[in-house]
């Protein structure tokens, strides 16, 4: 566990040394503040459009931070050849994969906490009502979704030649899942034959990241999610993240380290 935490700590330090997070945070804050100061029909009570834009920016920023940070972890170690002294220590390849995952996931969580903190500040600025419990649930679900995304990007970093390729593929896959995965069963039902069966197969095989998106509930001030479904969603994310990490470990075990 100490090894894992040591590996994770390095990743967290890397996040606050790099400029990605600061740039994205400043951009989010700037766009939100400009939009918040726009006057629509001399009404100061409108807040939902601002929530929508802020949450969208938070989702995009968190995704960028998680994918880009995860995608460069192992390739950077290989490129700078620091992977050799690392593995010369009593550290297994499984621990490297797990430590990198833990570091990126925790770092993404820290960044996410700051973003959601900013969201609360914006809500207070506009004197908006809203459920704090739902806000905490949204943060938790978002973070759990990032666990799957980070695991996916780490697996991709072992399969694809360059971090840029991996990042692009991860963005396309995650965006595709977020937009379409929940509707694959509807499409499958309308598609007879093997096409429909293939879509059903994809529907059950793909991680349903859209489950973790409760932005609409927050924007339109609906009640929080019941505890049962929240626990099931958490377990669902944990299972997918674990499967992807096992796959990453399996690939890493067989991968020659020479560049």
């Amino acid at each position: 566990m100490r090894t894992l935490l040591a590996l994770a700590w390095v990743v967290i330090k890397e996040l606050y040394r790099r400029k990605d997070f600061y740039v994205l945070f400043v951009l989010t804050a700037l766009i939100t503040l400009v939009l918040g100061s726009v006057n629509f029909f001399e009404d100061t009570l409108m807040v939902r459009y601002l929530r929508e834009v802020t949450l969208l920016l938070i989702w995009v920023s968190a995704l960028v931070i998680a994918v880009v940070t995860a995608a460069r972890q192992i390739p950077a170690e290989r490129e700078s050849r620091t992977i050799f002294p690392l593995l010369a220590k009593p550290v297994t390849r499984g621990q490297v994969v797990l430590g990198k995952f833990l570091g990126v996931w925790l770092a993404s969580g820290l960044a996410l906490a700051l973003f959601y903190g900013f969201y609360l500040v914006v809500g207070a600025w506009k004197a908006a009502s809203g459920s704090l419990a739902l806000g905490l649930q949204a943060f938790w679900l978002h973070w759990m979704m990032l666990a799957v995304v980070v695991a996916l990007a780490i697996l991709g970093s072992l399969l694809f030649s360059a971090p840029s390729v991996n990042s692009t593929i991860c963005f396309v896959v995650v965006t595709g899942i977020l937009l379409l995965a929940g509707h694959l069963n509807t499409l499958a039902a309308a598609q007879p034959g093997p096409g429909g069966a293939l879509m059903y197969g994809l529907y059950f095989a793909l991680p349903h990241l859209e489950l973790f998106d409760v932005r609409d509930l927050m924007i339109h001030e609906h009640p929080p999610v019941p505890l049962g479904p929240l626990v099931i969603a958490t377990l669902y994310a944990a299972v997918y993240a674990a499967l992807l990490l096992v796959a990453a470990w399996w690939v890493f075990r067989r991968k020659p380290l020479s560049t």
Partner: peptide, 28 residues
Amino acid sequence: IDRLSRHFRVTEHTHLAGAQTEAEILPW
């Protein structure tokens, strides 16, 4: 999956009404 996902999205049909909440549609 469909059953589970309905806990995480809006499944209740309500309209904006009262306390000037209808103003929320105006920016769009």
